[in-house]
């Protein structure tokens, strides 16, 4: 694997923001009133709104899942980076007299 790990935080943040965005969409869908429609339309409108709140929920989960995966990767890369840096610092790289 090859990566510039600092960049991983950027998409992780994007997807986290999308998670928030889609939570807002879910709320907005929940606020839609079906009294705008004729009585014979309202049951279908209600079912429709409920269904789309469900899709917004799934979208929230998807965005959150991608954000979590990327965040995990970024954290792991950062931790590994720090551990390896520490290992290098602790490594006696001298030979001969200096050692």
């Amino acid at each position: 694997m090859t990566t510039e790990w600092d960049d991983i935080w950027t998409p992780a943040t994007w997807w986290g923001e999308l998670d928030t965005t889609m939570q807002g969409v879910r709320t907005r869908l929940g606020n839609l009133g079906v009294s705008a429609f004729g009585e014979s339309v309202r049951p279908a409108a209600t079912t429709f709104v409920e269904a789309w709140r469900g899709y917004a929920d799934e979208s929230v989960e998807i965005c959150a899942g991608v954000a979590e995966a990327l965040t995990t990767m970024a954290v792991d890369v950062d931790r590994t980076d720090a551990e390896i840096a520490q290992a290098f610092e602790g490594l006696d790289g001298s030979v001969g007299e200096a050692r």
Partner: peptide
């Protein structure tokens, strides 16, 4: 969401 998903996140990430 669709637009964001189409945006490549980073250049140097392979694997």
């Amino acid at each position: 969401v669709a637009e964001r998903a189409l945006t490549a996140p980073v250049v140097a990430w392979f694997g």
